[in-house]
């Protein structure tokens, strides 16, 4: 068990972290329907059972296939219904206050993309409309994210480009430079990422965070072998919970240095994203004729 309190950084592209490992859940039931190593589900399940959190805001099911809806899981059974990645937006932060109100939560778990982790931390430091929420964020788990898609984009990619009905999709994945669609009947369609680019959510193009730098624990498939996930443990809270979960036997881990493709790939993709989007941010400054588009990193004006 690698467990150190000093902060390592490979470069700012990976944010601050205390530990980085390759991991997967030891629970077969969780792995069965998870995207990769079942990290998010396993960590929340452990935290729920131990009372570290009393509920988790996750991307739940809605009345349309692969269209997520924020959902507050307060039991492991409820958590199990929301495994897997949906590649379009679940406004999980929209429930962060309600969780402390009609749901009565005191210790919230929340999973989200890097931008949602940014929203959570801004909300804690500048809780303009989030009364009594800041001290109730018990575990914020971030997921690696290159970009996200509007629901309609996913629909067009799956139904038009891949020629698969949304209802028959078993799993979607982005990896190895491709967008993958797996069907219930075993067929696999892969689309080159250049097809997907135009469908990306525009707001993603100014995002300067790939590996959810502001989460307590962040995770994603990149850097680890199939069926495993790369995990960054970032904060004191994250370190504490991760350490306990490891001690409780929730995860198998391997040192990140010993797996392929390893941290180098994570770093490479993070740098690609940041460089590309930094350029977008800069281009916005001269977008019109002596007229700029807004830059939220400079001011709210």
């Amino acid at each position: 068990m690698e467990h150190s309190s000093e902060v390592k950084t490979m470069g700012t592209e990976l944010g601050k972290y205390k530990t980085c490992v390759s991991a997967r859940s030891t629970n077969k039931e969780i792995l069965k329907k998870s995207q990769d190593g079942g990290i998010v589900t396993q960590l929340f399940a452990y935290a729920l059972e131990e009372g570290i959190i009393d509920g988790a805001i996750v991307a739940g099911q809605s009345d349309e296939p692969y269209r997520p809806r924020p959902f507050i899981a307060t039991t492991v059974e409820e958590l199990m219904t929301s495994r897997g990645t949906r590649y379009n937006i679940s406004p999980n932060v929209s429930w962060i206050k309600e969780a402390t109100r009609s749901f009565g939560l005191d210790k919230i778990g929340i999973v989200g993309t890097p931008c949602q982790m940014q929203a959570v931390r801004k909300g804690q430091l500048y809780p303009v409309g989030l009364r009594d929420v800041p001290d109730k964020i018990a575990l914020a788990v971030g997921i690696f994210c290159m970009e996200n898609f509007p629901y309609q984009s996913i629909k067009q990619l799956v139904e038009d480009h891949a020629g698969v009905k949304m209802e028959s999709v078993k799993k979607m994945d982005i990896g190895k430079g491709k967008f993958w669609v797996y069907t219930e009947r075993g067929a696999v369609v892969q689309l080159p990422l250049k097809v997907t680019h135009k469908y990306e959510q525009p707001g993603c193009h100014v995002c300067l965070d790939y590996v959810a730098n502001l989460s307590d624990v962040s995770t994603g498939s990149v850097g680890s072998p199939d069926g495993w996930s790369t995990v960054f443990v970032r904060t004191k809270k994250g370190d504490d919970i991760w350490g306990k979960a490891i001690a409780a036997g929730c995860f198998e881990t391997k040192p990140i240095e010993q797996v392929k493709p390893g941290l180098e790939l994570v770093s490479k993709l993070a740098n690609e994203k940041i460089t590309k989007n930094q350029k977008t941010v800069e281009e916005r400054a001269t977008f019109g004729v002596n007229k700029a588009l807004r830059n939220p990193y400079i001011s709210p004006k």
Binding site: D54, G55, T74, E98, R101, S102, F103, G104, L105, D106
Partner: peptide, 19 residues
């Protein structure tokens, strides 16, 4: 939470216990 016609959200048993 109050609105014309009732309330937007019901309270969960956990919320009730807390209150």
């Amino acid at each position: 939470n109050p609105r014309v016609g009732g309330m937007y959200k019901a309270c969960t048993p956990r919320a009730v216990n807390k209150m």
